[in-house]
């Protein structure tokens, strides 16, 4: 265990907000030390130790630099550090697709990859799809128009998957849409209106 003291704990809590005080100050001994401040932050727990990593990526068109514990998930970086809470966490086990974002244009589940896996990449979240003046993306508008949501929890992930789908298959059939949305679960709608929304969204995206 490394020496640390309260200042070091505070510094780490600032640099790594998602780690949380509990895990930093857990146990009787303060378990933190810093070497080469800002770039290499070492936290030692009774069983845990890491060296922070600095990531550079583009999120919704803006350059982002973040220093994170390597075990930070992409969805934790997006929600907790960048404050973009439109990306939801439903299952946290890679099943439901609520956390879907685009990584270099490809739909991925942000709860099932490390933030470090997005280093150097371009990430688009639901906050990044509308036009600069706030006009909804055609796929968002289609979900509204077709009543493709009820509680809305799955919707950000559905919209991101649908955009990836239409980019690859602008003329996807109804059956293909159902097949392609396999990785996104909805507890409310029964999918019918979601499929209609994706069809309408595809038509408007093609215009």
């Amino acid at each position: 265990m490394l020496a640390g003291g309260p200042d070091a704990v505070r510094a780490v809590a600032v640099a790594l907000p998602h780690v949380g005080r509990r895990s930093i100050v857990a146990g009787s001994a303060p378990a933190t030390g810093i070497e080469e401040p800002a770039r290499r932050i070492r936290i030692t727990h009774p069983k845990e130790e890491h060296v922070a990593v600095t990531l550079s990526l583009t999120v919704n068109g803006k350059a982002v630099t973040a220093t994170v514990d390597p075990r930070t998930l992409l969805v934790e970086l997006i929600r907790n550090q960048l404050g973009l809470t439109g990306t939801h966490v439903g299952c946290d086990t890679g099943q439901c697709g609520a956390c879907t974002v685009l990584l270099d244009g490809r739909a991925v589940k942000a709860c099932n990859l490390l933030a470090a896996q997005a280093n150097g990449a371009s990430v688009t979240t639901i906050e990044g799809v509308a036009a600069a003046d706030g006009t909804m993306h055609p796929m968002q508008a289609a979900f509204k128009e077709c009543h493709g949501l009820q509680c809305g929890f799955c919707t950000p992930g559905m919209v991101m998957s649908a955009i990836d789908l239409v980019n690859r298959h602008p003329k996807a059939s109804e059956a293909a849409i159902r097949e392609e949305l396999e990785g996104n679960l909805c507890r409310c709608t029964g999918y019918h209106n979601i499929v209609k929304a994706v069809q309408l969204g595809a038509a408007s995206m093609g215009k």
């Binding site: 890679g94 991925v108 990836d164 990785g183």
Partner: peptide
């Protein structure tokens, strides 16, 4: 394999 998001990674 799995779903679209899994196949993308």
């Amino acid at each position: 394999i799995g779903d679209r998001q899994v196949r993308n990674m």
